[in-house]
Amino acid sequence: MHLIAQTLVDGLVLGGIYALSAVGFSLIFGVLHVINLSHGILVLIGAYLALIFSQALQVDPLLTLPLVMAVLFAAGYPYQRFLIQRAVNQSGLGSMLLTFGVALMLQNVMIWLFSPDMKSITPGYAFASFRVAGLTFDAVRVSALVASLVLLSCLAMLLKFSALGRVIRATAQQTMAARLCGVNVPHVYALTFAVSAAFAGAAGIVIGIILPFSPADEALWTLNAFVVVVLGGVGSPAGALIGGLLLGIVSTLTAQYIGPAFPNVTMFLLLVIMLLVRPNGLLGNAFAASR
């Protein structure tokens, strides 16, 4: 009983991080209908930037969050507007292949800059932990989970209440109508991408403080994001949260009770079952865009 409770708690912590790491991917897919295969590399760039900034400024890695998000926001806008958008105008697979190409290039660049080895970010409280009701909580994991939930809430509020959020939602639902109402659609797309990139970077910091990372991980984080979106549904932080938590719990349960080597297998089985049973995701509409 105790073991299963601890496993579930660990799963929830992991799930919160999965949710944050997928929310940008989900937003881009929901609004731009682009599968961003460079998503994983944006997450990793966030992690590496946090590593550099926290060492250079001698601060807690979580405090580098605004800086990292700003850098990725600034890079995401032109990336979408001047590269991805041109591929979108080509064909269905165009944007996917372009983002894949960019992911490969950036992965190579990061191997040059940081070596292919595993890195990790170690905050001051790395080994602190506390116990509540017999369950162990690492300080690092708890702060990662809290950061994830706070950031997800921020994004949800941004989308729901801000003027930018309203324009983004309007463009996603009725692109043509939004255009007729004077919305500068390419600008909104680029802004959406920039916001998504910023949140991918934020996810990278949170991932960086609890897990080691290397440039080759980018495919894993992209695939994770894809699964989360399939499970939870496209385009909303709530869908990402549900998908992320589900994936997190399933991963830790698998690792605990089936074997630590099989998280991808269960993840994929879950994906297949989901596609057969509920092809639209638990929330929202995951497949309309692919049909």
Binding site: L83, R86, A87, Q90, S91, G94, L97, L98, F100, G101, V102, A103, L104, M105, L106, Q107, N108, V109, I111, W112
Partner: peptide, 19 residues
Amino acid sequence: DFHLFATGLLLVILVLAAP
């Protein structure tokens, strides 16, 4: 060391210039 980069660049150029 350049293989990944070159393949990626080729992919980007292809998509943009010669679909």
